[in-house]
Design a protein around this nucleic acid. Structure first.
Lengths: 200, 200
DNA sequence: ACCTGAACACCGTTCAAGT
DNA sequence: ACCTGAACACCGTTCAAGT
């Protein structure tokens, strides 16, 4: 009944609902109807569990857009899908950040991305830089959610931080989704720039 | 002797040397030559302490480049300085991510950035998107350090992940600093794109 | 082979007691 | 006003004991 797979899935559930700090071995065991000590028959410790969790989240990333013959459209779709995964599981980011890339699935993801960048016309060194840039953008946008940081209304910021107030106000007038628009803007400019480079 | 300021500075020291998990109230008190319970005379709890820590790290960001009459150069320098701060304190990122922006100094930072983007010719809504994009890039690049994730050599990746192996190999031939180059690339393309927009 | 109870050294936090 | 010792409910992890 209990298995690495089942444990990882339950862990993702717990993190999604209870936050990064809510993922304790005891809470996880509870969700699985078992005692904390039992988990150690299947994972060597919490660190090992987090590796499984990273693999599980990574497996949700759709790689098929990378096969799109229109590489620009493919990369845009891939990046959006990549970001959507972490927006679905925002609590995992702080938990999984700065871990080494070891899961097979994760290596596969980077390999597919780099291959796609190569087919787009970038040499391997340039592809590495572009992949890093894409990674930064996706993870940064999922990590930070610019908007959520500002808890007060524009009017409250106005007296002491007028540029901030105007920006939040003007952005709200365009509707919600400043984070999405900021990401789209950066992604578009990045892909524009890459297209200009491959054209040369 | 003991003060919020002294506690926050000691906390940054502890985080830098002992990692995010190493920052415990007991370890922090130890470094200050005091008992853990004493800290609660100055901060209301660990969460309060992390707010101070966020403000302290944010205060290291140099805002003077934003006054540069050459806005493109100014934004580039600001972004590099911003990133340098988090590269100096990488352990703080996972700790401070996804917290609301409440410290005065942090609000000031965003206000100054948005004002600079306004002077560059962006309307407030566009400035907000550009600021978000810059934020994503800086935090993502500081969070992830693309290179550090791959612990094995290119040769080891080759059989199963050839594009990854080639990219790592070609990048290493250009010298270390793939993370810096990836960030520089994304920043350049982003600023190029913004310049094209303000020109219109 | 796998689950459990009990124990270990650790957390954050509270609070009465000291000075 | 501020520091301390002791205690609380919690951690991750180990291990002998059960089945």
């Amino acid at each position: 009944m209990l298995s690495r797979q089942a444990i990882a899935e339950a862990a993702l559930d717990v993190v999604d609902t209870a936050g990064p700090d809510g993922l304790t071995m005891r809470a996880l065991a509870d969700r699985l109807g078992v005692k904390a000590a039992s988990l150690y028959n299947h994972v060597s410790g919490k660190d090992d569990l987090l590796d499984d969790l990273a693999a599980l989240v990574n497996a949700e990333i759709d790689l098929t857009p990378l096969d799109d013959p229109d590489w620009r459209r493919g990369l845009a779709r891939y990046a959006h899908g990549y970001r959507a995964v972490f927006l679905r599981h925002p609590n995992t980011i702080a938990l999984l950040a700065r871990r080494r890339v070891e899961a097979d699935r994760q290596l596969l993801t980077y390999d597919a991305l780099l291959a796609a960048l190569g087919r787009a016309g970038l040499d391997p060194a340039a592809a590495a830089e572009a992949a890093a840039a894409l990674d930064y953008l996706v993870l940064g946008s999922a990590l930070e959610t610019f908007t959520a940081g500002f808890t007060r209304g524009a009017a409250e910021y106005r007296p002491r931080h007028p540029a901030l107030a105007s920006a939040l106000e003007a952005s709200a007038a365009r509707g919600p989704g400043l984070d999405d628009r900021g990401f789209d803007l950066a992604l578009r400019l990045l892909l524009d720039g890459l297209a200009a480079r491959t054209a040369r």
